[in-house]
């Protein structure tokens, strides 16, 4: 088993929390992990991505090779497109449809949707709406993790355990909101 996952978003959108949950589930499941992150200058409202690799055998590179990502999981629609060269034939794009507009030339949403539509049955999620329904707009990233869960190669129950481990220190209410958000994303994606 080997999964190459690109996590994409804009600095401050919480993609590292998504990574942390998958990491926890993979590590406690005895899998090998390599997860490269972006720190420093680009974090200030710039495009950020994380290369996450999990496998049941030894991994060498921290970076995913072009054309070998099984999944692009993006919390922002334009950012999902930025990493298409990494997508493997038959790889999946799962993205939030909430744009993060901090530049004047942000393209029209129809154009973005049209480009996303060229990938193989992309999973497109109105994550903010679902997150609010779950109890907090900040849980949008867990909605996205839920929507992508079936493509991560990890048992959803283990991902839920990861959410509990990650958010546990913040109290039960926060854990509940994030689990709910995760399940809403999951339900949407399994349809």
């Amino acid at each position: 088993m080997q999964k190459n996952i690109i996590l994409a978003g804009v600095g401050g959108q919480g993609i590292l929390s998504i990574a942390a949950v998958i990491d926890w589930a993979a590590l406690t499941g005895g899998l090998e992990i390599r997860q490269a992150e972006v720190h420093g200058m680009s974090q200030r409202g710039g495009a950020v991505q994380s290369h996450l690799r999990i496998a049941d055998h030894e991994l060498f590179a921290d970076l995913i090779a072009l054309g070998t990502a099984d999944l692009i999981l993006s919390v922002e629609p334009l950012e999902a497109l930025r990493y298409l060269p990494f997508l493997a034939p038959g790889g999946k794009v799962v993205t939030s449809l909430e744009p993060f507009i901090n530049m004047p030339n942000y393209p029209a949403m129809e154009q973005i949707l049209s480009e996303l539509g060229k990938t193989d049955h992309p999973v497109l999620v109105h994550s903010a709406e679902l997150a609010r329904e779950a109890g907090s707009a900040r849980a949008s990233n867990m909605v996205m993790l839920g929507a992508a869960a079936q493509f991560t190669g990890i048992d959803p129950e283990r991902l839920e355990a990861g959410i509990k481990a990650l958010f546990g220190p913040k109290g039960e209410a926060i854990v509940d909101i994030n689990i709910k958000a995760f399940r809403m994303g999951q339900r949407l994606s399994n349809h």
């Binding site: 680009s42 072009l66 973005i112």
Partner: peptide
Amino acid sequence: AETTAVPGIVVNRPP
């Protein structure tokens, strides 16, 4: 590797 190109509409997002 044969890869999908980045669509032309994808503009930079500078910090």
